[in-house]
Simulated assay, not measured.
Amino acid sequence: MREAIEEKQITEGLLSPISKQEARMKNPLVLAYIGDTVYDLFVRTSRVKASGEHVNLLNRWVCGVVNARAQAEAADKLLPMLLEDEADIYRRGRNAKSATTPKNMDIGDYHKATGLEAVVGYLFLVGEYGRLHEIFEAILPESEA
């Protein structure tokens, strides 16, 4: 009984998907905002499942994967496999004008990372969890996916 209630709360509640049209109407920086969190969650979850490391070692590894340079490399790897709507979201995110500029990182990497995060945010909001899984399998180190 409890499982059914929890599943219903997820599918009809706060985390329920929105339409693709509604998601496309969101500012790409808003998509990247939620995508950043989802990206971090996927990476952390995959590492926790794959290892028995202590928290500080887990965090050190995650910081090496969840940063603009690593995300830009992931975006380059991912670009050929993006579907048309995902590629459009990526371009919008990459080309979005942010009010802040990153410190200690390449601006090109930052823009690519923002594009990738926008795609992740879009897929999460529309409930394309299977597609998110495919993307993370493609970009995470093989031992982590």
Results as ranks from 00 to 15, higher is better:
Met1Gln: 06
Glu3Cys: 07
Ile5Asp: 15
Glu7Phe: 15
Lys8Val: 01
Gln9Met: 15
Gln9Thr: 09
Ile10Glu: 13
Ile10Phe: 14
Ile10His: 10
Thr11Phe: 12
Leu14Ser: 10
Ser16Ala: 11
Pro17Tyr: 05
Ile18Val: 13
Ser19Asn: 11
Ala23Cys: 06
Met25Arg: 13
Met25His: 09
Lys26Ser: 05
Val30Trp: 05
Leu31Ser: 07
Gly35Glu: 10
Asp36Trp: 13
Asp36Lys: 12
Thr37Glu: 06
Thr37Phe: 07
Val38Ala: 13
Leu41Val: 14
Leu41Trp: 11
Arg44Glu: 15
Arg44Leu: 14
Arg44Pro: 02
Arg44Ala: 15
Thr45Ala: 10
Thr45Gln: 06
Arg47Met: 04
Val48Met: 05
Lys49Gln: 10
Lys49Thr: 08
Ser51Thr: 13
Ser51Cys: 08
Gly52Ala: 10
His54Ala: 13
His54Gln: 09
Asn56Ser: 12
Leu57Arg: 12
Leu57Asn: 13
Trp61Lys: 02
Val62Cys: 01
Gly64Gln: 06
Val66Trp: 00
Ala70Gln: 01
Ala70Val: 01
Ala72Val: 00
Ala75Trp: 04
Lys77Ser: 03
Leu79Val: 14
Leu79Pro: 09
Leu82Lys: 02
Glu84Cys: 04
Glu84Arg: 13
Asp85Thr: 15
Ala87Thr: 07
Asp88Pro: 09
Asp88His: 15
Ile89Leu: 01
Ile89Trp: 01
Tyr90Ile: 11
Tyr90Met: 12
Tyr90Arg: 09
Arg92Leu: 07
Arg94Asp: 01
Ser98Met: 13
Ala99Lys: 08
Ala99Ser: 06
Thr100Gly: 02
Thr100Glu: 02
Thr101Asp: 04
Thr101Lys: 05
Asn104Lys: 03
Met105Lys: 10
Met105Ala: 12
Asp106Ile: 03
Ile107Arg: 08
Ile107Gln: 12
Gly108Cys: 02
Gly108Asp: 07
Asp109Lys: 03
Asp109Ile: 08
Tyr110Arg: 01
His111Val: 03
His111Ala: 14
Ala113Phe: 03
Thr114Ala: 10
Thr114Ile: 04
Leu116Val: 15
Glu117Ala: 11
Val120Ser: 08
Gly121Thr: 11
Gly121Leu: 07
Tyr122Arg: 05
Tyr122Gly: 02
Leu123Phe: 07
Phe124His: 12
Leu125Ile: 15
Glu128Pro: 01
Glu128Phe: 03
Tyr129His: 07
Arg131Val: 05
Arg131Gln: 06
Glu134Thr: 03
Ile135Met: 11
Phe136Thr: 01
Phe136Ser: 02
Glu137Pro: 00
Glu137Thr: 05
Ile139Thr: 10
Ile139Gly: 04
Glu142Leu: 11
Glu142Asp: 14
Ala145Leu: 02
